[in-house]
Design a protein around this nucleic acid. Structure first.
Length: 891
DNA sequence: TCGCTGAGA
DNA sequence: GCTTGTCTCAGCGAT
């Protein structure tokens, strides 16, 4: 018999993969990095070797004979981290799905199994490759048995191969002598004692001369270095024990089943499903080459004729479900929207997908015709399935339709797993196990998706068509999952209605005066010039102050300021560090001022100017699928971090103005997160504190520091305020100390006193951690989830992080939910009452409205009612409202 | 592309 | 002994 078999040391390779690769987590927080690495090594070896047979050996969980022996001798092995442990059964499942036999035997280690199988295979006349990270296995090498040891080097796996001859070359010893070597030198990693005082050099020398330990002992008197002689003489027992420990059993009761081991198709449908669930996207591509597992790629038919297009669009409006994707592009400057085509997917009778089409705009099929069709379908079709609905709302100016009649798969995917950043249609398709679609990368043969105007029409057709297909095909599963997770109400009643509000805000934009913005920038430039000159003078040279590297060298090396390295790459020059090091040093003051000025200039003055559109307004983009906690985010530009704390920065708000005839009305929630905490925790004392309707931080100070309310000092209030904020973030004594400039001990006392004062808070926060640990996620009042894979980490720091996040996410998230509700309700009221006033911005706990002067009173009332009434909490929700002729005045 | 820095809640 | 308060986005320099 001839042929080749590959034998794999499962645990050992898994171990290599675990430590050699960054930790990956699939959705749901399962760790998968080691499995992924294992498979990569496996595939690499199979490609190289093209073997006929494959078998993987694993240790059993029960302690084996050899374990017991050395554990009895000395301690235990270091325990396997939990992240790795949970991947062992997972790997076995994957192998099973691929039809690869796994051999395990109670009481025997993988080593022994590999040894036995390799001997048996060799006897059968096979070439054998044993793959393991463990050099102990070198003792198995022969002319026909190859030992292969992979190493991960800079992310790449390199494999070193040993036949018997290679072992001799590398160690100067025959493979069987490797056992003797271990017997003498020992192996701390494996708890093999060896002979104390004999290391690899002496051991090799002795074995070269005497061949075996036994023979060496017989001639012990002749052994050269005196020390080695006495060591061997005195510890011969230990050497014999070590030999037993190191010797791999090649006669274990396991069978070599070549029928099962025969390599056939690894890429089975079962394996495909597992890879997909585990998020091994790269590995999925291996299935393409295999016709059996190949899934048909969705076909998109391009429809150009007016009549045919018209018929199709009518049909879409008439069906009970339709998948729709509008390929359009909005010009940033003009705000004009161009429509390039419409992807459309229709169901079949059985609830599957019937056909997928692309209707390009052109000829008789005008852009307006397509937009009208979208409006009609949105209005008539009972379930419109989309991907990125906000863009469609903006392009077609869709009015809000009945709850439950639109389903955005992107938003659904976000709610189900808000931690990823990839909500591309092809990823959603894979996650939902629909028919195969091409990814954007495959369609355009580039990482970047081109703008619609640059797309070739045939590619645009596939892109838009498959997106529409995915929307339709993935919707049922996504809806079921939302239902299962109790998030359907959140999705239908909050996230989908919010889409219209965000679309309105984006369309509205905010007015900015370009001339004044430029003047502001010029003032900054002047200031920058002066401070810059001062810095260079004090440094004695010119350099780039914006370069932390150069700055660090100047400050800490040339000028010899106290304080050393803080970051991986060099000196930290962050403001708080500099502040602490040399608060008095004039150059530090100047640098901090320089930083402030250049930040304002580049990010705000110049940055904002580049976004002013032809209508004199900035139309920022609001994202609904970014944050882990449910907040919305803003980009291009980010209008949620416009300066306010420092006066100079705050000035920039003077260039944000309401339209002619309007004023700004700004309303922000008063300590919404703390109120949410009071509500969720149910802490009587904190709730009562809010019922007193006085300054909450002062009340806290009074209660925590045991002083009468009217004798609370400003410092006490400030400290109490910092604790109040910190609690919400899962504070540590270190963090609070840092914040307040007090000692850790004092900070710890503050926190303890706080918990004493509000006992419900501590138990509530601890309960959040426990519950998150059990369930694997945290939850807001409205059922929004945030997965918490970190809580299961074996890494202390990661786990600590997980605990803080578990405390913060439900609070921050609930506050985010509440303001989303408020936004929806405010927007609806404005429309219902046919007001000209409109929502312009949301800044997490604040809403900015452009209000018609004659509507000021009405709108104030609406805000008051809808914002405070957005949630019914155990404490009142309160808002502060201001009007003004600029954002500066209104805040 | 990554890390640092700093703006906001 | 080690770490050290949440969530973001943008600009810059170094790689």
């Amino acid at each position: 018999m001839s042929g080749k078999i590959v034998l794999i040391d499962g645990h050992s390779i898994l171990n290599r993969a675990f430590y050699g690769l960054p930790d990956l987590t699939a959705s749901g927080g399962r760790h998968t990095g080691a499995v992924y690495g294992f498979l990569n090594i496996l595939f690499k070896i199979l490609e190289e070797e093209q073997p006929d047979y494959l078998t993987v050996a694993f240790d059993t969980h029960a302690p084996t004979f050899r374990h017991k022996m050395y554990e009895a001798y000395k301690g235990t092995r270091h325990p396997m981290p939990e992240e790795l442990r949970e991947q062992v059964p997972l790997t076995q499942e994957v192998l099973k799905a691929m039809g690869v036999p796994i051999v395990m035997k109670e009481g025997f280690e993988a080593d022994d199994i590999l040894g036995t199988l390799s001997v048996k295979a060799e006897r059968e006349g096979l070439d054998v490759s044993v793959v393991s990270g463990d050099r102990d296995l070198l003792q198995l090498a022969t002319e026909k048995v190859l030992i292969r040891i992979p190493r991960t080097k800079a992310g790449k796996t390199e494999i070193t191969d040993y036949h018997a001859g290679d072992v001799e070359e590398a160690y100067g010893l025959t493979p069987p002598q490797i056992v003797e070597l271990k017997a003498l030198m020992g192996d701390t990693a494996d708890n093999i004692p060896g002979v104390p005082g004999i290391g690899i050099k002496t051991a090799t020398k002795i074995l070269k001369e005497y061949g075996t330990v036994e023979n060496a002992y017989a001639h012990v008197e002749n052994i050269r270095p005196q020390k080695a002689m006495t060591a061997l003489r005195d510890h011969y027992d230990s050497a014999l024990l070590s030999e037993k420990l190191a010797k791999i059993n090649t006669d274990s009761p396991v069978e070599l089943d070549l029928e099962k081991a025969r390599l056939e198709n690894l890429f089975t449908p079962e394996a495909y499903e597992m890879f997909r669930d585990l998020g091994f996207k790269k590995l999925l591509t291996r299935f393409e080459a295999d016709p059996a597992a190949e899934k048909r790629v969705v076909e998109v038919r391009t429809v150009t004729g007016l009549q045919e297009a018209d018929a199709l669009l009518k049909k879409a409006a008439g069906t009970d479900r339709a998948g729709l994707y509008l390929l359009q592009q909005t010009d940033r400057k003009s705000g004009k929207c161009r429509v390039y085509g419409l992807g459309l997917s229709l169901p079949d009778q059985k609830g599957g997908v019937g056909g997928t089409y692309y209707i390009p705009a052109g000829g008789f099929v005008t852009e307006n015709l397509l937009l009208d069709a979208v409006r009609r379908i949105a209005g008539e079709c009972p379930l419109l399935c989309t991907f990125g609905f906000k863009e469609m709302v903006r392009a077609a100016e869709l009015p809000e339709s009945a709850e439950g009649s639109v389903f955005d798969i992107k938003i659904a995917a976000y709610l189900l797993d808000p931690l990823t950043s990839d909500y591309s249609f092809d990823t959603i398709a894979k996650d939902c196990g629909t028919e195969r679609v091409l990814s954007a990368e495959e369609i355009f043969q580039s990482k970047k998706i081109p703008l619609p105007e640059q797309m070739e029409e045939d590619k645009a057709a596939v892109y838009a068509g498959e997106t529409a297909f995915t929307a339709l095909a993935a919707q049922p599963l996504l809806e079921r999952k939302l239902e299962e997770n109790g998030m359907l109400a959140l999705f239908r009643g909050m996230e989908m209605p919010l889409v219209y509000v965000l679309a309105d805000m984006e369309r509205a934009g905010i007015r900015v005066l370009p001339e004044e913005l430029e003047q502001y920038g010029n003032r900054l430039t002047e200031g920058i010039r002066q401070v810059e000159a001062s810095v260079y003078e004090q440094a004695g040279e010119t350099f780039n102050i914006n370069s932390p590297k150069q700055l660090g060298e100047i400050l800490f090396e040339k000028m010899k300021l106290p304080g050393g390295k803080k970051t991986k790459t060099g000196y930290s020059t962050a403001a708080d560090v500099l502040e602490k090091l040399a608060p008095e040093a004039p150059i530090v003051r100047d640098i901090l001022e320089y930083r402030q000025l250049t930040k304002l200039k580049s990010t705000y003055a110049d940055g904002l100017a580049s976004f002013i559109a032809d209508d004199g307004r900035i139309h920022s983009v609001f994202h609904q699928t970014i944050t882990a906690t449910g907040r919305i985010s803003s980009t291009d530009p980010n209008l949620q971090n416009i300066p306010v704390r420092m006066e100079l920065g705050r000035q920039i708000r003077k260039v944000f103005l309401p339209a002619e005839g309007f004023v700004f009305l700004d309303a922000d929630y008063s300590q919404i997160e703390l109120r949410v905490l009071a509500h969720l925790s149910g802490d009587r004392k904190l709730i009562d504190a809010y019922k007193m309707e006085k300054d909450i931080h002062a009340i806290t100070a009074s209660q925590v520091f045991h002083v009468p309310f009217d004798q609370v000092t400003p410092l006490q209030r400030r400290n109490a305020k910092a604790v109040n904020f910190g609690i919400v973030y899962g504070i540590s004594s270190f963090g609070l100390a840092e914040d307040l400039g007090i000692s850790r001990k004092e900070a710890a006392e503050y926190i303890e006193q706080y918990y004493q004062t509000y006992p419900g808070i501590r138990s509530f926060l601890e309960g959040l951690v426990t519950s998150a640990r059990e369930k694997g996620y945290s939850e807001t009042m409205y059922g929004r989830r945030r997965p918490m894979p970190e809580l299961k980490s074996s890494n202390f720091m990661q786990r600590q992080f997980g605990e803080r996040v578990a405390k913060n996410a439900p609070i921050q998230g609930t506050a985010a939910d509440i303001i989303k509700i408020a936004m929806i309700r405010v927007n609806r009221r404005l429309k219902q009452e046919k007001l000209r006033s409109r929502l312009i911005l949301q800044v997490h706990d604040e809403l900015l409205l452009e209000t018609a002067k004659d509507e000021l009173e009405t709108v104030s009332r609406i805000l008051e009612e809808e914002m405070t009434g957005a949630a019914k909490l155990a404490v009142r929700l309160e808002i502060d409202m201001h009007t003004g002729n600029s954002w500066y005045e209104a805040k």
